[in-house]
């Protein structure tokens, strides 16, 4: 496979336990084609795991599927993830803080977006009552 050409790969995964691993393996393979270093490959993989899990857990989509498009350019990998769920408001989600999470009775979860935004070069979210689209880009 020639890593210098633009390519597009589409993947649809069901919202089932551990299916996020299938998506992350495709991301990692494409990042390898683009000759991303090991650290960046792992970051892409982890960010996509988190994006899938967020969709699995919160979208309430009726078709229970996540639609992923991977687009490669010579110097970047762009991942677009869509679900047909109920959507969410990005601004309603406060960034999690460990000191708050360690308080008794506080829910420990809610780290997905923070991880995605920390691990990728850009993350754009478009969400409404018909579903959510997340576009994540990682540069080489």
């Amino acid at each position: 496979m020639d890593g210098e050409r633009n390519r597009e790969v589409e993947l649809t995964i069901p919202m089932l336990q551990d299916m996020e691993l299938a998506a992350s393996r495709v991301a990692e393979a494409l990042a390898e084609v683009l000759k991303f270093d090991e650290e960046k490959r792992a970051e892409v993989s982890m960010a996509l795991l988190e994006a899938c899990i967020n969709s699995f857990e919160h979208s309430k989509s009726e078709d229970r599927k996540v639609y992923i498009t991977f687009q490669t350019a010579p110097d970047e990998l762009k991942i677009t993830l869509r679900d047909h769920g109920v959507g969410f408001q990005r601004e309603s989600i406060d960034p999690p803080k460990i000191e708050e999470k360690l308080r008794p009775g506080v829910r420990k979860r809610g780290w997905g977006l923070k991880l995605m935004e920390s691990l990728m070069d850009s993350v754009a979210i478009d969400s409404d009552e018909y579903g959510t689209t997340i576009v994540m880009v990682k540069k080489k």
């Binding site: 899990i53 460990i98 999470k101 420990k108 997905g112």
Partner: peptide, 14 residues
């Protein structure tokens, strides 16, 4: 790892 698994480690850490 994923953040759901790590969240359970945070429960332990608490």
């Amino acid at each position: 790892i994923n953040s759901v698994g790590v969240s359970i480690l945070i429960e332990i850490l608490e």
